[in-house]
Design a binder for these strands. Structure first.
Lengths: 219, 219
DNA sequence: GATAATAGCGGACTCTAGTCCGCTTGTCAA
DNA sequence: TTGACAAGCGGACTAGAGTCCGCTATTATC
């Protein structure tokens, strides 16, 4: 397992914050203005309390202008998270490379990945809640972050199996889904706001689920 | 652990299908008519493709009449599931009593409960998807089924701990949340429709998560 | 610099969830 | 049986998500 240091993490497809090829300068300026305006209004009033007409009015653009660039509020929220998601990905990639070089096992890496993910979700929960509102069967673009997280999680699970850390017969695709399901924004917010769970508690609980899947050599 | 056969399963609060105290006969008739009409339209066109105005029209009542009884479509869907939810609860309760009498351990009972729940969700996924659309932070009435499932799951987990089947330090509240999160209708439908997971696969994956939390006596 | 093509604009419009008010009807007490 | 009260009615109305069409402005080509 000495050659396991290149995890295939797909890059996120950039959405709204990056200029599409051939975008006119006025459209580009409006796109930036819309994002900046939305970010400001969300910070002032909370994501769920701001509607698209209010963003259009505050930005002094027409509603059609907003919808030409962003199919819906979820896509606008996803665009606002773009660079942070990419940063998170890059930081995680770098961290895993380091850990691999230092001999940290795949299961240890998964542990740290999930822990970091809990903190990432804490920082972006309101936006994520909006992004995930439609569920997993909605518009493909909105599922890109989930696909990446699933791919990363399942990649690490597979490596842990190959390293004989986890049970060989483990259903990786299912387990990755289940782990990520418990980190859906609406579940997470419920745990934080209603149950009063701390981040440490959430992280520990999640990692305990993984730890339980450890491979104990038969005999 | 010989006295562990009375699990405290709260009864579901009946909603829309049961006459509230003092309900007028015309209101009662309309309520039944609305439910029957909705059920028919949902069966014909799918839950997500039928709106409240269509139900009102088909039932030949005013829209206000629907909203007087059901706060929203989710509550209407929950009402449609009322008796099936109550049946499921009763069947599970009876089954657990039997299993306890036969000496099936709490962990074995949890296994069967989760398996049965997978099949229940399969039968009611479209309605549940509508009920759960608002997430866990929404209107309290819509969370009653979730609360009951959580209570049952955590009750069984606690008994398994007391029976020394599961790790004593297990965070029961967190684990129950996580298990149920993976059975949220939108996740479930994604697994069924997009991933093509079979019910057996989903059930097995879920039960593997629980199995991993087994208590192995230190030595 | 001028012109043509089309991307982009704004806001009137549509659709659906949900609200609410004046009128009607069912129920209960006398 | 009658009258009073309030539950219940229907549909016009509001609010917000989203659509779309006639007009404008940007850009590429000559």
């Amino acid at each position: 397992m000495s050659n396991q240091n290149n995890i295939t993490l797909g890059n996120l497809e950039p959405t709204g914050t990056v200029s599409p090829k051939g975008e006119r300068c006025d459209a580009a300026a409006n796109r930036k203005l819309i994002l900046a305006t939305a970010e400001k209004l969300f910070a002032q009033h909370g994501v769920e309390n701001v509607n698209m007409a209010q963003i259009a009015q505050a930005a002094q653009v027409g509603k059609g202008t907003i919808y030409r660039r962003f199919a819906n509020k979820a896509e606008l929220c996803l665009a606002l998270m773009d660079s942070q998601m990419a940063d998170f990905q890059n930081v995680m990639l770098e961290r895993m490379r380091k850990m691999t070089a230092e001999g940290v096992t795949p299961l240890g890496q998964l542990d740290q990945f999930l822990d970091a993910l809990v903190y990432f979700i804490e920082d972006h929960a309101p936006l994520l809640d909006e992004v995930q509102r439609e569920g997993l069967l909605g518009n493909y673009d909105l599922q890109v972050p989930h696909f990446w997280l699933h791919m990363t999680t399942s990649g690490l699970l597979r490596q842990a199996i190959e390293a004989r850390e986890l049970l060989p017969q483990l259903d990786v695709a299912y387990i990755a889904d289940a782990l990520l399901a418990s980190l859906r924004a609406n579940v997470f917010l419920f745990q934080r706001q209603v149950r009063g769970f701390s981040l440490e508690r959430i992280s520990a609980g999640l990692r305990a689920l993984v730890a339980g899947l450890r491979f104990v050599e038969a005999e």
